[in-house]
Amino acid sequence: MKKIPQKEIHKYLRHNKKFPHVWCPGCSDGIILGATIRAVAEIGWEKDDCAMVSGIGCSSRMPVYVDFNTAHTLHGRALAYATGIKMAKPRLNVIVVTGDGDASAIGGNHLIHACRRNINLTVICINNNIYGMTGGQYSPTTPHGAKASTMPFGNIDNDFDLCKLTIGAGATFVARTTAYHATEMQSIIKAGFEHNGFAFIEVMAACPVIYGRWNKKGDAPAMMKEMKDQYIPLSVFDKLAPDEKMEKSPRGILKAVLEPEYSERYAELVKSLQSREGEKV
């Protein structure tokens, strides 16, 4: 991982216009924004060639801060908007920022179908296990038993494992990281950017103000420490006994395979049709 000087980062921010940001004290979103920009800077993408698309929610406010081509779209639909952008202009590097509710509840259908198509988008899914923007309702990733404003007696729903979900749906790059592991996050996001195909990166995030309060998790540092303990490298996780695995979650790149990418596949189809058309004449 390359160290990116602070000055370099500012180049990618609409820093003079849009700060201070909307996120609560202790929120992980700023750390994730930083890692995302550093990953872009490391690859050296031009700002004009990058598009950031989001849905609705805390995490989805991110595009306003970056000096890219940016779209804050509708709740759950970021992937469908991003698909249109990518297919209309495949040379753009399209980054989708979304949250657990945005991606897997209201947007769950678009998520599995984007995985299936293997279109070259990088999804940074910020999972804080709750709907923060609307004040703390339970989401599809709120753990079973945890509390939220609409599960005040403890969550009776089962929660999604977003990485297993996207692997099952055919994503060709799936990774999990946390806001605590900020430098690792940067290299994982970079790998996701460089992956030619659909890349899904779940970033575990702390929401001390809402999720933390409902579940007596303590302040932001306490929640970061919990992430540090709970999310262990995949190689370590694999060696655990089955009952030990119940207590921990793997992090790192969980899947990375190369399969034909959708916009390239489409371009090939167009090319073959046009050469066939040429033969006829």
């Binding site: 779209t73 469908a80 908007y81 249109g84 952008i85 297919m87 209309a88 259908n109």
Partner: peptide
């Protein structure tokens, strides 16, 4: 697309591009 919601989203996204 996977539904009509995605269809209108994709055409607006494409128009943006």
């Amino acid at each position: 697309m996977e539904d009509e919601i995605a269809s209108i989203a994709a055409i607006i996204g494409a128009s943006l591009a």
